[in-house]
Design a protein around this nucleic acid. Structure first.
Length: 587
RNA sequence: GGCGGCGUAGCUCAGCGGUAGAGCAGGCGGCUCAUAAUCGCCGGGUCACAGGUUCGAAUCCUGUCGCCGCCA
């Protein structure tokens, strides 16, 4: 029976390029999950988009003397390129600065207001007398009240790392004009009444959460049970963002955290319109059996297990998250990734020098599912050479080459199977349940390990059967062995497909099949009434494989095989580390 | 200060109540179809430390030490 599954990922801030920590934290896992579920025949929709609002964007814009929209126009297309190069198969990757998203967000706001979940209150904020405006946290700098660092930002001190309330700053300065002519004034804002949602959220968290990761569940439960939730401001005194749809508040904007999570829903609506099925979104949002998965990093847990579910309850009628498989952090060479300290491995950059599948492989093998992990270049090279190339790529290559050379470039016809043949074939059938079960439970490291074990079994099988000896004495026996081995690598092609779609596509072709198993990705321009924006779309409806043991036809013509993966020179590890150290100096 | 996590073979980690595991590194051997790839064997650990629960604990509980996050 086909299930309806909505797969979403965190919405990346559109103010810079993504690094491998982002990929390992959220985006890659979501793609593996989505590709697998599609092969299972489930009704999958995977959506996300660029987060275009908030001070990270405006700060970036000011640093470069351009508009926020120009920042978005630079980085959003780069995200679209990255998804295509890495094979992240969003059915729709859009952005938040669209008429659709604005309208849906304003609808949420007004519905929350009508339902009594939004209230007005005043808060204290710095006001710049020279600029005659309120200053959002990121627009005030001053001395940190805790460590005395003179360059602390209003939201956080970069020196001691503390989260600050801007009004605590000593000797505050305006970041817009540089002046110190500031005073604290009261400003009126709208607040989401999370206290009112505490009870309903507690009820929700108690039922059917056994599949949640312990860390996510414990954290959420602790917050809901002990920490009394407090109202959270939804609006800010800035100019970039979605206007507040209430007369008299035209100069305020909706706070980015509120509109960004609504993107999960608005993107589904946009997809429905683009595909000409205006009601299709209901499949995932209103049918109780539908499941929604949110792939995010651990810093985002409360937004997805408390705030967004609360917003959905307050809105009414929409499905709450089924699972929030949050990942932890990926460090590199023992140091935390940091854009400001220039300690990053940017994905678009490394994809200039390396193929996508080795990254997908390594980042899955060390995916931070239960704790922080450490990526090293040395391990990347080792996993590529010892696991991808030696175990899997070489298995495919040795079998294909043998068949191509000795059996007239065709799949040989097998004779009677012996126990050993049957044993391996059975293991390859069982692997679909084993690997699939792990992916269903979002245990992707375990899933990849299980697939690799089958490849190891196939290598053992060949060494025991020794078809290179059989071919000299008993051609029929060699034919059976090679048929069995081809059958198994054809199945491994499917088993590895969610993780390594690019190389599975190649193998699919070497085995003599036709057709595209990766699906098709394309960028298109969406025109609304007054604005237009770029989106990435995906069509996997023609994919000719399913999540089940394949049966290879004897006599099928093979194509000339090529190695699936390249070996990497171990010296590269040192070079890459040096490149990073050089890049970080002067930061 | 509060909350949480981690501490298992030289290295990276899995196991989370029933006689210590994998990969890599090291040593030896088999094979030669394959990207000198593969396959087999060997050495190597008082599972941080101290108590407790249990017929039985790396696995549960308490405390100590050492790292690391998040929040105050």
């Amino acid at each position: 029976m086909s299930k309806d599954i909505l797969v979403t990922t965190a919405w990346p801030y559109c103010n810079g390029d993504l690094h491998i920590g982002h990929i390992a934290g959220a985006y890659l896992g979501a793609d593996i999950f989505a590709r697998y579920q599609r092969l299972r025949g489930n009704n999958v929709l995977m959506v996300s988009g660029s987060d275009t609002h908030g001070t990270p964007i405006t700060v970036r814009a000011e640093e470069e003397g351009i508009t926020p929209r120009e920042v978005v126009d630079r980085y959003h297309p780069r995200f679209l390129t990255l998804w295509q190069k890495l094979g992240i198969s969003y059915d729709l990757f859009t952005e938040t600065d669209t008429e659709n998203h604005w309208q849906v967000t304003q609808d949420f706001f007004l519905t929350h207001l009508k339902n009594g979940y939004i209230y007005k209150d005043t808060m204290k904020q710095w006001y710049c007398l020279d600029d005659q405006q309120f200053l959002a946290d990121r627009y005030v700098e001053g001395t940190c009240p805790y460590c005395g660092y003179p360059e602390a930002r209003g939201d956080q001190c970069d020196n001691c790392g503390r989260i600050l309330d801007a009004i605590e700053l000593i000797n505050p300065r305006c970041r817009i004009c540089g002046g110190t002519n500031l005073e604290i004034r009261e400003t009126e804002h709208f607040f989401l009444d999370l206290a009112k949602l505490n009870g309903p959220l507690l009820e929700w968290i108690k039922e059917d959460k056994e599949h949640w990761r312990p860390k996510v569940l414990n954290y959420t439960r602790a917050q809901l049970e002990s920490g009394e939730l407090r109202g959270r401001p939804i609006t800010r005194d800035i100019e970039w963002g979605i206007p507040v749809p209430v007369p008299g508040y035209e100069h305020k904007r909706i706070y980015v955290w509120y509109d960004a999570v609504i993107g999960y829903y608005s993107a589904t609506l946009e997809w429905s319109h683009l595909t000409g099925q205006p009601d299709a979104w209901r499949t995932w949002w209103t049918q109780p059996e539908a499941r929604t998965y949110y792939f995010i990093g651990k810093d985002n847990i409360p937004f997805h297990t408390i705030i967004w579910p609360g917003m959905l309850i307050a809105y009414g009628g929409l499905n709450l998250p089924y699972d929030v498989p949050a990942n932890e952090y990926l460090n590199v060479e023992g140091r935390q990734l940091s854009k400001s300290r220039r300690w990053v491995i940017e994905v678009l950059d490394v994809l200039e020098r390396y193929d996508p599948d080795p990254w997908r492989y390594t980042l899955t093998a060390i995916m931070p599912e239960t704790g922080d992990v450490n990526f090293t270049w040395e391990e990347f090279i080792r996993r590529n050479n010892d696991e991808l190339v030696a175990t899997w790529g070489n298995l495919a290559n040795r079998v294909l080459s043998f068949a191509y050379k000795h059996f007239d470039k065709r799949v040989p016809t097998p004779g009677p199977l012996d126990e050993r043949d049957v044993e391996l074939l059975r293991a390859s059938e069982a692997a679909f349940d084993e690997v699939g079960g792990h992916i269903d439970a979002v245990r992707l490291r375990a899933a990849l390990r299980a697939a690799r074990r089958l490849a190891e079994s196939a290598n053992k099988y060949l060494n025991e059967k020794e078809p290179w000896k059989q071919i000299k004495t008993d051609r029929a026996a060699a034919a059976t062995t090679i048929y069995v081995a081809l059958q198994v690598i054809d199945r491994l092609k499917v088993l590895f497909y969610p993780f390594l779609p690019f190389s599975s596509q190649k193998l699919h072709e070497y085995l003599g099949y036709e057709g595209n198993i990766m699906g098709r990705q394309w960028v298109e321009e969406v025109r609304e009434k007054e604005r237009k924006h770029l989106v990435l779309r995906y069509d996997g409806s023609d994919i000719p494989i399913r999540w089940e043991a394949t049966t290879l036809q004897p006599g099928q013509s093979l194509r000339k095989p090529q190695p699936l993966f390249r070996k990497l020179d171990p010296k590269l590890a040192e070079e890459e580390v040096e490149r990073m150290i050089r890049g970080s100096q002067g930061a």
